[in-house]
Computed example of a mutant assay.
Amino acid sequence: MRSRHRKISRGKVLAAAAAALAAGTAAIALPQADAAGTGEVAQSITGTAWAVDTRTGETLVTADSTVQGAKWDSLLAATRGKAVRVERTPGVLSLFAEGGDAIFAGGARCSLGFNVTTNDGRPAILTAGHCAAAGRRWSLTQGGRPVATVQKSTFPGNGDFSLLTYDNAATSAPSAVDTGGGRLVNITRAAAAQVGGQVSRMGSTTGLHNGRVTALNATVNYPEGRVTGLIQTTVCAEPGDSGGPLFTGDGSAIGVTSGGSGNCRTGGVTFFQPATTALAAVGARIGG
């Protein structure tokens, strides 16, 4: 059964949805993490992602269930002899559609992220960039009156984030995450992820889930294109959770859900857009 969450006045952060994704081909650039720390190994392997484990200095390469046969052999050959750890993840790496308390544009459903304030004082929403592809105007109910408009968006490329400003400049939009059951986590700052750190994610499809950060500066080869600079985690997510907030119990905004593989029954890998990077890019901050 889908988890239901209490909405926070008119302003909770809403994040992104897209349709289910088909397989494609995208190239990845895998850094040659040898003792010299130089060079690159380039492979055209859809269904792979790479990131850096800052604790060990290793490059962590993740391969989904589509990387089989010649693709798997090619991946192993490209990483042999390097300071690289190759891991499998169930399912297929893809963007997660919807998430958080839903917002809508056209036929698409998107999710909650973080309410923010722009540098010129406007109330706004920070969410996943792939959400913006579904439409420019967003409402809080399906077919309802639009309340927010996309102003900036990045996807694919150097991140997966977008900024939506509320149409009513007087909108009350506290930076808080509703974790269900009448409980709120007040978000007071944005902070960088730390490898090994415990984090929580909220989404409208699967609700509240916890996990840890496994690597930073991840590059993911989605069928829509390559996205760089993401956080890799063990937190599960499913279609409907995209754009939802990644945060810590002390009130730190860590990121917004981008995509991944697996599900919340068997586990998987989920990637997040860092909040600090996105806020700097769109010119916004947590809080009023």
Rank of each mutant, 00 (worst) to 15 (best):
T48C: 13
A49H: 14
A49F: 06
V52D: 11
D53T: 07
E58L: 02
T59Q: 01
T59C: 00
T59K: 00
V61L: 04
T62G: 00
D64V: 02
D64H: 01
D64W: 01
V67A: 01
Q68L: 15
A70T: 12
K71F: 07
D73R: 11
S74R: 12
L75W: 00
L76D: 09
A77V: 15
A78F: 11
T79Q: 01
T79L: 06
T79P: 07
A83M: 00
R88C: 01
P90K: 10
V92C: 00
S94R: 13
F96C: 05
G99M: 08
G99D: 07
G100K: 11
G100F: 02
A102I: 12
I103C: 00
I103G: 12
F104V: 03
F104T: 04
A105C: 04
A105L: 03
G107V: 14
C110R: 08
S111K: 12
G113P: 03
G113R: 15
F114Y: 03
N115L: 06
V116S: 07
T117V: 08
T117D: 05
T118S: 07
T118R: 15
N119M: 11
D120M: 13
R122H: 12
R122W: 06
L126Q: 12
L126V: 14
T127S: 12
A128Q: 09
G129V: 02
G129F: 01
H130E: 09
C131Y: 08
A133V: 14
A134R: 13
G135F: 13
G135M: 11
R136Q: 10
R136F: 04
W138S: 07
S139A: 15
G143C: 05
G144I: 13
G144A: 02
R145Q: 13
R145P: 02
R145I: 13
P146F: 12
V147R: 09
V147E: 10
A148M: 15
A148Q: 12
T149S: 05
V150G: 00
T154H: 01
P156F: 03
P156V: 11
P156Q: 02
N158M: 09
D160P: 04
S162H: 09
L164Y: 08
L164T: 12
